[in-house]
């Protein structure tokens, strides 16, 4: 454990932003001014008395892409859904530990979940356009959060459709049902919809796995652009994808975080035996 921490520490220094989350001292030390983070502290999640996440402690950064990798059933998705409390919709679930966003524990007694979810959006595995027009899909979130001015909404819809590269494809049929779009377009629409409520973080749950290679590339490129403004945390099954876009990588196995660190360090010099095996394809 000790040696591990040290090697990490070396890597952290090189990147300047990665901090060990175990000591409270370290947490506040290295963060640049105005940098938002998500602090996950000792998170345990049980579903029907089966422990899915085991004491996960992790820090996630704004304006970076963090990829969570690991074999199926290792708790990647559960972890992702715990970060904006979408986990609450699962049956028989029990959560212990803290997730601190903007200095507020989202599992604290005063936490308000709609507010949390507005701050941390989720892009699901399969595109799920809402059963309404393309325009309303994007306007829905803004409307519920208080923007009702038609001009403002028009501007927002255009802005985010442009941001996801959909504008030119759909500008003539904004009021057609969203279900008429291709799968790839639907996923980009969902992304635009999520961005329109102005989150700080975007959680992506294998969001390219249902798409064809071209659409998938499209989403990846979007993520790389969006990194300028948002923190992106994505679960992925494809190591290559993580290799292409990740700034940080978290490797999970059976509900535990085995190894975490900057992407090139973790990929090139994995410390843990399991990580090495996973990366070299002994299991997947």
């Amino acid at each position: 454990m000790d040696t591990e921490t040290q090697t990490f520490a070396g890597a952290f220094q090189r990147f300047g932003q990665w901090k060990e989350t175990d000591g409270s001292e370290a947490r506040t030390a290295g963060a640049p001014e105005g940098e938002n983070t998500i602090d996950i502290q000792g998170l345990n999640v049980y579903i029907q008395d089966k422990q899915i996440l085991k004491d996960v402690t992790l820090q996630l950064f704004d304006r970076k892409i963090t990829c969570i990798i690991g074999p199926s059933g290792c708790g990647k998705t559960t972890l992702l859904r715990s970060i904006n409390r979408m986990i609450d919709t699962t049956e028989h679930v029990r959560v212990e530990g803290n997730v601190i966003v903007d200095g507020e524990n989202i599992y604290g007694p005063k936490a308000e979940i709609t507010h949390i979810r507005k701050k941390i959006g989720l892009l699901s595995q399969r595109p799920t356009p809402l059963p309404m027009s393309i325009y309303d899909n994007i306007a829905f979130g803004c409307r519920i959060h208080g923007t009702r001015n038609k001009k403002k909404l028009d501007a927002i819809v255009e802005q985010y459709l442009r941001a996801t590269g959909l504008w030119d494809e759909v500008k003539d049929r904004l009021h057609n049902p969203a279900s008429g779009l291709s799968i790839g377009q639907q996923q980009r629409l969902c992304l635009a919809r999520g961005l329109a409520v102005e989150p700080q973080f975007i959680l992506a749950d294998e969001s390219t796995s249902a798409l064809d290679p071209v659409s998938s590339k499209h989403i990846e490129d979007l993520f790389l652009q969006l990194r300028e403004r948002y923190g992106i945390i994505m679960v992925t099954h494809t190591l290559r994808q993580a290799l292409r876009i990740a700034d940080y990588v978290v490797f999970m196995y059976l509900g535990e975080v085995i190894e975490k660190g900057p992407a090139d360090v973790l990929f090139n010099h994995p410390q843990h035996e399991l990580t090495k095996q996973y990366l070299s394809g002994v299991f997947s």
Partner: peptide, 11 residues
């Protein structure tokens, strides 16, 4: 999924 998508917008 549809409900999840809605909730994750903060609804």
């Amino acid at each position: 999924d549809l409900l999840d998508a809605t909730y994750s917008l903060g609804a």
